[in-house]
Design a protein around this nucleic acid. Structure first.
Length: 208
DNA sequence: GCAAGGATCTAA
DNA sequence: TAGATCCTTGCC
């Protein structure tokens, strides 16, 4: 069964001229998290191109956020988070999965946006191969799953997301009534903060 | 509902 | 160096 592309403005074509530049990521994480919704993440390796619409994000702050990896200060694991915005912070979760964050704000700050779900739009067969499943709705559902679908590993920690091999392309703008803002998922501290954002009508988000 | 799974960090 | 923790997932 073919699923409809809900969040694509026009037929998808990778276009590096239309990518988000570094200055976009030098903003507070909650702004970046919200504005990333509806943009398209594109990864190229050799002849493979994988892409999808970002439909769910979470912000992790540098202050007053006990569930942020940066809360304890600079460690070996969270080093990338303290770099200048516009790179990936990749970490291993529960020893099994990888999770992809986009670092925000200037060097030394320590904030990031976790990408939690993506609507697959390009290279879907490659994602299916990476995941070993063929249900498009589940390919990039959840941070661990989307990392596997895009073949992100710890090797991608510190990678710039402003190059022709990995970038984020502008797409549609969403108004506030198309975006839900809720509490974050899977954390035990600072649970009251509403820093999760997702597109209201998307069937590709990790959880309602 | 809960176990798998392994790196990371802290306390000693 | 032992022990707890963990921005998850998929199975029971």
């Amino acid at each position: 069964m073919l699923l409809k592309c809900n969040n694509l403005k026009e037929p998808f074509k990778p276009d590096f001229r239309n990518h988000l530049t570094e200055d976009f990521f030098i903003q507070p994480a909650e702004i970046v998290a919200k504005e990333l919704l509806g943009t398209i993440l594109i990864k190229k390796e050799e002849s493979d191109t994988i892409a999808g619409v970002i439909v769910e994000t979470e912000a992790y702050l540098h202050q007053n956020d006990m569930s942020s990896h940066s809360y304890v200060g600079l460690t070996n694991r969270n080093k990338a988070m303290f770099e200048r915005g516009g790179i990936l912070y990749v970490y291993r979760s529960y020893g099994i999965h990888h999770c992809i964050n986009i670092v925000t704000e200037d060097k030394g700050i320590g904030s990031a946006v976790l990408i939690r779900a993506i609507e697959p739009i390009f290279g879907i067969d490659i994602m299916m191969r990476h995941r070993g499943i063929s249900d498009r709705a589940k390919l990039c559902k959840g941070p661990g799953n989307l990392s596997k679908a895009f073949n992100f590993t710890i090797e991608d920690n510190f990678t710039k997301i402003t190059t022709p091999y990995l970038f984020i392309q502008k797409n549609a703008d969403y108004s506030n009534n198309q975006i839900f803002q809720t509490k974050r998922i899977g954390i035990s501290k600072s649970v009251e903060l509403e820093l999760r954002f997702y597109l209201k009508n998307s069937i590709f988000i990790s959880r309602k």
